[in-house]
Design a protein around this nucleic acid. Structure first.
Length: 420
RNA sequence: GUGGGCGUAGCCGAGUGGUCUAAGGCGCCAGGUUGUGGCCCUGGAGAUCGAGGGUUCGAAUCCCUCCGCUCACCCCA
């Protein structure tokens, strides 16, 4: 028996409503804010991600699907959405467009991880990016959008966490202070944190172990070590968010996993759910990324949300999506002549834009109606030998349980005018 | 990569060494008079009890190995 590969899953028809709901709300939000859709390939040159995400990060070290194609080219399945967009920005000379360039996307993301609740090897992300400006109003715009996204989905009880981790000028200094501080507490650190101290000191701050909690709480804070420019930038972001009435919480322990983030970082998560894979979305500035990829120095900021996690959360909160799409008319028949007529009528209905399917096989009318009922169609057309003879069809209203004959030539029009 | 929990028909699930050639429910198929659904009744199909090995006179039930699922850690959406 074949099964979907580990960490992947089928989105079955009855689940599709959730996804369509999110896609529609997200797209119209982006439209409202002046963002345009972009789609990039599911795979890229492997080097694009190694350079941008950071050679020391877990994503690159052990979580990418990387292989050589038949031409010997190093390929990586997209493990995140921002780097490909920066690549496209550079490749298509978007710096010649009015800045900032506002883009959004829906993308499959691939990471070779051990699956658990809300974490998969293939998942869907929705994200948006504003490239080409460092204005703090843009930070506020993107954060506002991400907040409105969840509002428009009807999802409440969220926390918006906000922090600034400085730029390439002030962060090294801060990291030194952080390492100094942590070096004094090495014996009390968990094994993971001992590793982090060497490899990725920023991540020390968001260790989930209770034993490391106090140490992280009283650690030096990045916001206290920002250079004057970053400090002013952060203050302006905060001022604009307050202006917009966005209820953020400053979180000095919020750091993001990807190396390219600068200055503003933020994350949205359900309130009171510490520990598990709860971040529904997050983002931040990446002012050096485009330059690192060979473009001109171009500051930018973006956000991405995990659609699988949103679906999970909608279910938890009891938010019902759209009902599954279905057809409107089932055409039942009795006898060979009626069968031919049924196939013909079904085609006519479809040409007229009325979703319909014909019955099949040679089953009793009882069986056919039972089938129609199980499918939940509002209307069934019944064609028997008598109807073929008299040039009529029977239209049965499945919810009322009433039926009436109509002339064969008029039935399509009758259904058209009934527009449910 | 590490640790915990779990694996009985499409789904839920009883069963803890013999009465299991495996209960029940949902779903599916058919029938309950001649061409009519939803409720009800009856019948049917569908399970190598995750796989392999072992213990035993006898294993879905005990042991071992493997595989898978799941939750948590690492990390991330």
């Amino acid at each position: 028996m074949y099964k979907a590969p580990r960490g992947t899953s089928d989105i079955l028809p009855q689940e599709q409503g959730y996804w369509r709901y999110i896609e529609e709300k997200a797209s119209s939000l982006c439209q409202l804010y002046g963002y345009e859709r972009i789609d990039t390939p599911a795979f890229e040159d492997a080097r694009l991600f190694i350079r941008t995400i950071g050679p020391g990060t877990d994503i690159v070290e052990k979580e990418t699907y990387t292989f050589e194609d038949r031409g010997g080219n190093p390929i990586t399945l997209r493990p995140e959405g921002t780097a490909p967009i920066c690549r496209a920005y550079i490749e298509h000379g978007m710096h010649n467009q009015p800045q900032p360039v506002r883009l959004y996307y829906f993308a499959s993301i691939f990471r070779y991880e051990r699956p658990q609740k809300g974490r998969f090897r293939q998942h869907q992300q929705f994200g948006f990016e504003a490239l080409g400006s460092s204005d703090p109003t843009l930070d506020a715009e993107v954060i506002d959008m991400s907040w409105q996204l969840f509002a428009s989905l009807g999802m409440g009880h969220l926390s918006l966490l906000l922090n600034s981790i400085g730029c390439k000028l002030c962060r090294p200094n801060y990291l030194e202070r952080l390492k100094e501080y942590y070096s004094q507490h090495i014996p009390r650190l968990c094994p993971d944190c001992k590793q982090r101290l060497k490899r990725n000191p920023l991540r020390l701050l968001d260790c989930k172990k209770p034993s490391c909690h106090d140490i992280a709480e009283s650690a030096p804070r990045s916001v206290d070590h920002l250079c004057p420019e970053c400090k002013e930038h952060f203050e302006n972001v905060i001022r604009h968010l307050s202006l917009l009435g966005i209820p953020f919480e400053k979180s000095h322990r919020l750091v993001r996993g990807l190396d390219y983030y600068t200055r503003t970082v933020f994350e949205l998560q359900p309130r009171g759910e510490e520990g598990a894979q709860t971040a529904l979305g997050g983002g931040g500035r990446y002012d050096d990324l485009i330059e690192e990829l060979g473009g001109r120095p171009t500051p930018a900021i973006g956000f991405a949300a995990g659609m699988d996690r949103i679906v999970l959360n909608m279910k938890q909160q009891g938010i019902s999506p759209y009902p599954p799409e279905t057809f409107r008319v089932f055409v039942a028949y009795l006898g060979e002549k009626a069968k031919a007529e049924s196939v013909k009528l079904t085609a006519e209905l479809r040409r007229a834009g009325i979703a319909a399917i014909s019955s099949f096989g040679d089953r009793s009318l009882k069986a056919q109606l039972r089938h129609a009922n199980a499918l939940g169609v509002p209307h069934t057309i019944i064609i028997g030998e008598d109807e073929v003879g008299s040039g009529t069809v029977i239209l049965r209203d499945m919810t009322k349980g009433e039926q009436k004959p109509f002339k064969r030539g008029e039935i399509v029009h009758v259904l058209e005018s009934m527009k449910l």
